[in-house]
């Protein structure tokens, strides 16, 4: 099985979020970048598990500059065979998806696995866009994937529950929690990642949207503390003051 996993970098989850340039640019000073958790924990690990069970290869693809190389090496250390970086600074999902789809088009992949969203832009757009560009089936928010021959059996989050779906390969999916368990790279993985191929490709595509301005949510006011033995008072406040219940 030939598997492509889309990998994005994202600021570490403990990062202080701030902006410079009058709110136009994310302030990356002191920010540690990680592999976007949904891409790493769920999409990549499931790809590697499927390769271990059925044979084949796992390639990662990242759209971004050379600053992304450390997170790409991390993905290789976890167990991907090789990596592609499309050298571009994407502005939006359409552009990113176009670059990924153009690369994937002639490579005969069976599966393209993505995380459900990045934890910085929270777009959830690239996976289905890639599917449409390739005219492949797409499963959003997949929590389970098994492959037998050309048939994939999946579970996906849907309104009020989990839906079971079958689809023939090739297929694009966005992975959500439940798909796989996080894997910590071992020493051998980290050593071998250094010599695995990381191919840099060129590509061009147009963006259709851009961020004009970032801002931070307003600060919360002070917390009103209610004594533990007056829990009834909290319920009264929730009804009469906050009008929440």
């Amino acid at each position: 099985m030939k598997i492509l996993v889309c990998i994005s970098q994202a600021p570490d989850t403990t990062s202080r979020i701030a902006f410079t340039d009058g709110g136009k640019t994310f302030d990356s000073t002191g920010v540690q970048y990680i592999v976007n958790p949904y891409d790493e924990w769920y999409a990549l690990v499931r790809g590697i598990e499927l390769k271990e069970a059925h044979g084949g290869t796992v390639t990662t693809i990242t759209v971004g500059g050379a600053v992304c190389d450390p997170v790409i090496r991390k993905a290789l250390a976890i167990g991907a065979d090789d990596a592609v970086r499309v050298d571009a600074e994407p502005t939006d999902a359409m552009q990113t998806a176009e670059l990924i789809a153009s690369y994937a088009k002639n490579q005969a992949f069976d599966l393209i696995l993505c995380g459900k969203e990045t934890i910085d832009h929270n777009g959830s757009l690239v996976p289905a866009m890639v599917a449409e560009m390739l005219d492949w089936p797409f499963i959003a928010l997949a929590t389970h994937l098994e492959v037998e021959g050309i048939e994939a059996s999946l579970k996906r989050e849907s309104a009020g529950g989990t839906e079971h779906v079958k689809v023939n390969l090739p297929l694009v999916l966005s992975a959500s929690k439940g798909m796989a368990e996080q894997r910590i790279p071992n020493m051998r993985g980290i050593m071998s990642a250094r010599s695995k191929p990381l191919n840099v490709e060129q590509g061009e595509a147009a963006a259709m949207s851009s961020v004009r301005q970032f801002s931070l949510p307003p600060e919360k006011g002070a917390c009103k503390i209610i004594p533990a033995d007056q829990a009834e008072e909290l319920i009264r406040l929730l009804r009469e003051e906050a009008k929440a219940i």
């Binding site: 999902a93 359409m94 777009g123 757009l125 996976p127 866009m129 928010l141 259709m208 949207s209």
Partner: peptide, 18 residues
């Protein structure tokens, strides 16, 4: 997450989610 982005590609329209 599944229909919107596919439609955006078909319409060649920019999409903003959430």
């Amino acid at each position: 997450r599944a229909i919107g982005p596919r439609l955006a590609v078909r319409l060649q329209a920019g999409m903003v989610s959430g």
